[in-house]
Nucleic acid binder design. Structure first.
Lengths: 237, 237
DNA sequence: TTGAGGAAATGGTCAAACCAATTGACAAGC
DNA sequence: GCTTGTCAATTGGTTTGACCATTTCCTCAA
């Protein structure tokens, strides 16, 4: 019984793997144009169809983009946050991840993000954060408030200067703007949020990670209690 | 100047989008066989080459797998953790994310994972966790200790019952087993780790999220100080 | 009953065209 | 000189038809 046969690598897979490696290693720098299809055909001895399938895989993986016409071709890309976002998006949809789980995930990230922001923020971060916070306190419209709130959080996440957490947070954060949870921002709730966020901001400005973490965590827990008191747990995306 | 032209959707893109939607919505349940290439050709009026490119895209996105031979074909898949892992893998490689950032990310997740584990763990989780902890305390080999340690953490992450965090943690955790950081597990370090982990485990068993969070966070910070005292910050993956 | 061999179904590959989009070059007209 | 229009060149997109490779099913003979 052949329990383990060596999987035969297809021609297009070989080429895709080869080009992928060259792009990820930087041998083909981002922005460079790959050889055109017909050249790849003669270089690798594959048919044009196989070459195109290889390139199509790379495109689906976010490693190249395609331009039509003369001076077109495939442009090498460094994989960015879009890939992470797309894969999480499909994971959430495919696995039927419930909305509360998504919320729980973001809540799990935010205290650490606040701590890292306090540790790593630079002057630009502080300026952006202050601008977001100031804007937030002037907004009265509930829907606009939620958007501005999300923006403040996003800015804080970026201040962490942790590329992985930023990619994850940017992937998940926007999903929390679901219209079904947009009704919570009554005037007093908004005031409480502004206050809590201001306290976190102070800790980030002061460069006190543990204070920022603690304040953000309390804010998050308070927010959760609020949402749970209003929304049924069964809401699904 | 045409600043915004309506991007023309290619034939294979249309088909890929259509099939992707059917799979994600569950109209084509996981495990089902898609129509074969020649049938898709006649159903959608595309050439076989275009159909194959569409299917190749879905394969790259983890939505179908391909089997050769009679009774072969494309099997629909629900996107799982592999996709998330692959995209994070490419992100880390392509963006040249430094090892300390990776470590920082995992450290950011673990306290919340511990808290969620304490909140959501079931009897199976407790049994697995206890087994991992017990095994850990009996290991003397440094390399094996690190592997068992990773396994305990992974088990704890699964006890959180948060599918997104599990997917992320499973994607990043294994990368911390880099051989370059495998030399830290001296006997007294191992004893300290076993003790810290035991305390977290107690809190998870007791169902006390905030205690578990606090203890895990202290452990993580202690571990970080240890690593920083030994490893240069410039180590890169 | 079992084994061998061939038929059938399915994806993998190749080849040669031609279509579609974009850009460059160049000439005509202002 | 500058603009504008036309045509040619380049590159990806698509089609068609054929054949190969792998796997499974089916039949028939030992």
């Amino acid at each position: 019984m052949d329990t383990e046969v060596t999987r035969v690598e297809k021609g297009f897979e070989t080429l895709a793997a080869l080009l992928r490696e060259q792009i990820l290693r930087g041998d083909i720098p981002a922005g460079d144009i790959l050889p055109n299809e017909r050249d790849l055909v003669s270089q690798f001895g594959l048919s044009r169809g196989s070459v195109r399938e290889a390139l199509r895989v790379l495109e689906a993986q976010g490693l190249v983009s395609t331009r039509l016409g003369r001076n077109g071709g495939r442009v090498a890309l460094q994989p960015g946050t879009e890939m992470v976002r797309d894969s999480l998006e499909m994971f959430i949809r495919g696995q039927r991840v419930a909305f509360p789980v998504l919320m729980e995930t973001v809540e799990a990230l935010e205290p650490s993000l606040a701590a890292l922001a306090a540790e790593h923020r630079d002057d630009d971060d502080l300026a952006s954060l202050h601008a977001c916070g100031a804007r937030l306190s002037r907004i009265s419209n509930a829907k606009a408030f939620l958007a501005a709130n999300a923006r403040w959080h996003r800015t804080m996440a970026h201040a962490s200067h942790n590329a992985i957490l930023i990619a994850i947070y940017d992937s998940l954060g926007p999903r929390l703007l679901d219209p079904r949870v947009a009704g919570f921002a009554s005037a007093d709730v908004r005031a409480a949020v502004v206050h809590a966020i201001g306290r976190v901001e102070e800790a980030i400005i002061a460069g006190e990670p543990e204070t920022a973490r603690r304040r953000m965590q309390r804010h998050v827990q308070a927010y959760r209690r609020l949402v749970e008191s209003v929304a049924p747990k069964t809401v699904r995306l």
